[in-house]
Design a protein around this nucleic acid. Structure first.
Length: 277
DNA sequence: CCTATCACCTGCAGGC
DNA sequence: TGCCTGCAGGTGATAG
């Protein structure tokens, strides 16, 4: 469900709502959501620790505790709810509950059970751990430069959209914003990345940052109207120009937006504004 | 090493 | 109404 802007919105919201609580107890209802240790170990280890900081790399949310770090990936449908311990919750889709000493709970909700938790020691280099083995630089990381993207992506036999979605090079762009970035660049999502010239890579990165940055800003605006009972999933209504606009007129030229499949993902584009070469 | 496909899960919309 | 199919804002493992 969430891409980088949504995860960042969740990060900020949890930081505001929870601040720095002490974990009194953790219950895991669906064992497989804990990826790199047993649910029992996970619960035993985090118990008693305080959440010191909330961080994010790409689409990964990171809870920094006293001695350990919890890495959370929401995949397609993961979301968090902050509620009081006595409030009811959706027993069918809630897979983990963190209870704090202040009476609040952080509840992890995930309809499809795709999301994962990883637990690491705080002194370990995070980006070298399993959770990040296929994770490149965050879109906003200063090491993510046009030159780096060109060298990593341009030689490959993949489409522009696949390049944007490849988390191992630049982490954070998902299916929605990949379409929006292709539209902003004026390229058909299916164009070979090898046809994108070196001089276009600064624009590629700039548009990715502009679009994700705008989405974060919008998320931050919308999230203020959320109540805890609505959940914290970072969702918001951005003005999408092509994604999910099949059959509607292009905002630039009025041509009908087309949906096609690119690399098994639903893909929306304007056949007039987005050139194939 | 590279790219393509499957597997993981559930709910829902649309066709018959 | 009920059944079936396809599809969903993601990613790791596996197959070629």
């Amino acid at each position: 469900m969430p891409e980088l802007p949504e995860v960042e919105t969740v990060r900020r919201t949890l930081e505001m709502q929870l601040q720095h609580p002490v974990i009194e107890k953790v219950t895991v209802f669906w064992p497989r959501i804990v990826d790199n240790c047993s649910p029992q170990q996970f619960c035993d280890i985090v118990k008693g620790q305080k959440i010191q900081d909330y961080q994010r790399i790409g689409k990964y949310l990171i809870f920094v505790l006293d001695h350990h770090v919890i890495v959370s990936h929401l995949r397609m449908e993961g979301k968090y709810y902050v509620q009081k311990a006595h409030e009811p919750y959706d027993k069918k889709h809630t897979h983990a509950i963190f209870t704090f000493t202040n009476g609040l709970q952080l509840r992890y909700h995930d309809t499809r059970k795709f999301g994962r938790f990883y637990l690491y020691e705080r002194n370990e280099e995070l980006t070298k751990q399993k959770a990040f083995q296929h994770c490149g630089y965050d879109v906003f990381d200063e090491r993510c430069t046009p030159e780096y993207l060109y060298q990593q992506l341009h030689p490959r036999r993949i489409t522009l959209k696949q390049a944007l979605l490849d988390q191992s090079v630049m982490a954070g762009v998902g299916n929605i914003y990949a379409d929006e970035i292709c539209f902003a660049l004026g390229y058909d999502p299916e164009i070979s990345i090898q046809r994108v010239r070196k001089k276009d890579f600064p624009a590629l990165l700039a548009q990715a940052r502009r679009i994700l940055g705008g989405a974060m800003k919008a998320g931050g605006t919308t999230i203020r109207s959320y109540t805890s009972s609505l959940g914290v999933d970072g969702r918001f209504q951005l003005q999408l120009k092509v994604h999910a606009r099949k059959g509607q007129p292009c905002v630039n030229c009025g041509t009908e937006i087309i949906k096609k499949t690119v690399a098994t993902r639903g893909t929306y584009y304007c056949p007039k504004c987005q050139r194939k070469r």
